[in-house]
Design a protein around this nucleic acid. Structure first.
Lengths: 180, 180
DNA sequence: CATCCTGTTCAGTCTTGACAAAACAAACCG
DNA sequence: CGGTTTGTTTTGTCAAGACTGAACAGGATG
């Protein structure tokens, strides 16, 4: 969902104040790369992860082409990955009146969370279906038990994730909107 | 860790009693495939996931070559993937005195769980490092807040997983060993 | 010792998906 | 209108990794 911003805030990609911070910049690079790797583990393109990292560190929305420059990546990749993240509800596209360009800002994590929760619910359903299909007379007492444990496992996992979502939202400092 | 079994139980890959159950077999196939897909999402080879599914449905340890037959997959793949899962603590290799062949049984889920929990702790650490590196005077109030939220997010997530582990273990019906 | 049996490792094929360059489309501007 | 800016789509390349067949290794067994 594209958001329109009345206030034309300047584009500042996390430059603090003093320009002497080599270590800060290094830390930022590390963080961005770490996010890239981390999200790669979650089946997202590495660039998408880096995008998330960069946007987390950027207090104000970042311009499309700045993303490409800063991440040293083609505009094509930025286009593809921003669209991906936008559809997932992880980032928001921001536009401003009188400005033809697109800006992006982070939309916190819950989008991802729900995705993971869904995965577990799907697995829970699979296990349940299997348990139903199992004949009651079978010698597979162990199997039934195992499936029940598995069902419980996935259920609790999904519930916990839902809980985390609530917990994170509670600690919320800003009134940013939350993705469904 | 290879386990030695005193009782030479027969190899029965989940055949219930009556042979008339086409639907049961179909359900098993579905379940096995579902586990294959599910675990593929978690960066495991699909065959490894199917292996997990099959072993969940098998009350008794299954012979190496039966795994290959049942899954219609090369012995090489079985070798590779059983070793993988064994190292991860997801399955156990079972041997029997006077039998040169290898059998495998499921070792419930916790191994996987801990892996996931670890992933989140790593990410938490990344976010913490970044927060430390951030100069306190910076204009990035928002960024600090965001990082704190992220840290809390990952922390709660990892903790929840740890909790799930306990909850699943509590419901444990058999006295099977638990992987660290 | 020759041979089978069982599992592992190696080398090669094939699929998948990330990424980039370039062509493209749409909106704006002169 | 022709040219510019901005983002998208298409096309092609490349790398990673799953899977297999075949060669291999070690132990039993005649």
């Amino acid at each position: 969902m594209t958001v329109s911003e009345p206030t034309p805030a300047p584009d500042r990609p996390a430059e603090p104040s003093a320009a002497a911070d080599h270590s800060l910049h290094a830390a930022e690079e590390r963080f961005i790369e770490a996010m890239g790797l981390a999200h790669e583990e979650d089946r997202l393109p590495r660039i998408a992860g880096r995008l998330i990292g960069l946007l987390i560190l950027s207090p104000d929305p970042v311009r499309f082409d700045h993303l490409a420059e800063r991440l040293r990546v083609s505009r094509a990749s930025i286009s593809t990955n921003t669209r991906l993240l936008e559809n997932m509800g992880v980032i928001q596209r921001v536009t401003r009146p009188g400005d033809r360009r697109d800006y992006f800002r982070i939309n916190e994590e819950p989008g991802l969370l729900l995705r993971i929760a869904d995965r577990y619910r799907t697995r829970q359903a699979s296990a349940e279906e299997m348990k139903q299909a199992l004949p009651p007379n079978a010698g597979g007492e162990v199997v039934v038990e195992r499936l029940e444990r598995l069902i419980r496992f996935y259920a609790i996992l999904a519930d916990s994730l839902q809980y985390v979502l609530g917990a994170v939202a509670d600690g919320e400092g800003n009134s940013g909107s939350r993705s469904a």
